[in-house]
Amino acid sequence: MKKGRNSSSEAILFVIPALSLYLLFVIAPWISAISFSFFNWDGIGSAVWNGFNNYSEVFRDPEQFNSIKHSLVLIGFFSVVPVTLGLVLAHLISNLETTSLIGRMSRVVIFLPQVLPLIAVGIAWKLIYSSQGVLNQFLENVGLGASTRGWLGDFNFALPAIGFVGIWLGTGLCLLLFNSGIQKIDQHLYEAVQLDGGGRIRAFTSVTVPSLRPEIRFASTITMIAALSGFDLVYVMTNGGPGGATLVPGLEVFRLAFSYNRFGQACALAVVLSLITFLFILLINRVLKDN
């Protein structure tokens, strides 16, 4: 709205309740996390100034540094794969009328993971991955008994197994977002490509993807936020195990603070985590800016 009132004092009255809640319970704790992060503090006794040492420790301590690396891997699973897969699939089924019965029903079901508590999702997948779980039963039934294992206890498979849950969570969402976006694309653009002699692949790269910019930006943002927090899922599925192979920053913050009593260190990692999240979101929004 361009012709709003120029009244700062009145505007403040409207904005101040939300602003004070936000400042008191989000920004102030965050700033105080930043100030804790410069101290050596066991959470109970007195704090000792520690300069930037906690920050260099984030990158020196293999446990903390690995947790950051794991969250980058999870971005691949939670964000990159679902967005890419969603784009390709949405393009493939773009001919399906979303008003058809199957179209409508699938919309509802595919959205379901978005509303379930991640704790419950984690419990379900933990059972699926267990030694006698659905996945191993399935592998045995199709003659792949040799590949069965306790997935979440395996150093090579635990992180990808959690990542796969991210694909489960995100792909449906992306598919539907992009599908609904494609319906709005001007059909003449596709006809133009056809006239030029381009096939489906050209149509995908030169029409579908550029037209879906806002949807891709949105999907990447929310899936990336999910990937970088990841606390709930990892906490119930592996609690960081085996041997720290699935530790993520959120869980490591919790562990540093409440298992190791290193509150200053925990806050330093928390600050690094929020900076990483912020930088990634900024990056996405820069790269996928509207033309």
Partner: peptide, 30 residues
């Protein structure tokens, strides 16, 4: 939406910043 005031854009972006802050980052001071 309705008012124009100085630094409105900055204040709005300051709110948007909150959407990227993970709860893990603020739970200890809380």
């Amino acid at each position: 939406y309705f008012f124009n005031f100085r630094n409105k854009k900055y204040l709005f972006n300051f709110f948007l910043l909150g959407m990227t802050l993970p709860y893990e980052a603020i739970v200890i001071p809380l």
